[in-house]
């Protein structure tokens, strides 16, 4: 995801992901969701681009 997603890619993300979660994509809501996915993609690229050590522990760690 370390690149700017095109409109087609954003729509494919929505149309591919929503059924997996049993979510209905209502046509009237599509533009608003796509706008949010565009922001998420831009911010996700920032996180994805960062070289993180394999041994770094995720912060939200379960403790028994």
């Amino acid at each position: 995801m370390a690149h700017e997603l095109t409109d087609a890619e954003l729509n494919a993300w929505l149309d591919g992901g929503a059924p997996v979660l049993a979510l209905q994509v209502e046509p009237a809501f599509r533009d608003g969701i796509i706008a949010n996915l565009r922001v998420i993609a831009r911010l996700a690229a920032l996180v994805d681009d960062f070289a993180i050590d394999d041994h770094e522990e995720p912060a939200a760690l379960f403790r028994a």
């Binding site: 929505l14 992901g17 706008a35 996915l37 996180v47 994805d48 960062f50 770094e56 995720p58």
Partner: peptide
């Protein structure tokens, strides 16, 4: 619309975000 989009974020990105958080 924000919650709907958020639900679609791949888990692999969230794990990376949580590792970055530790860093």
């Amino acid at each position: 619309d924000r919650l709907f989009a958020g639900a679609l974020i791949p888990a692999s990105l969230i794990v990376k975000a949580q590792k970055f958080r530790s860093w």
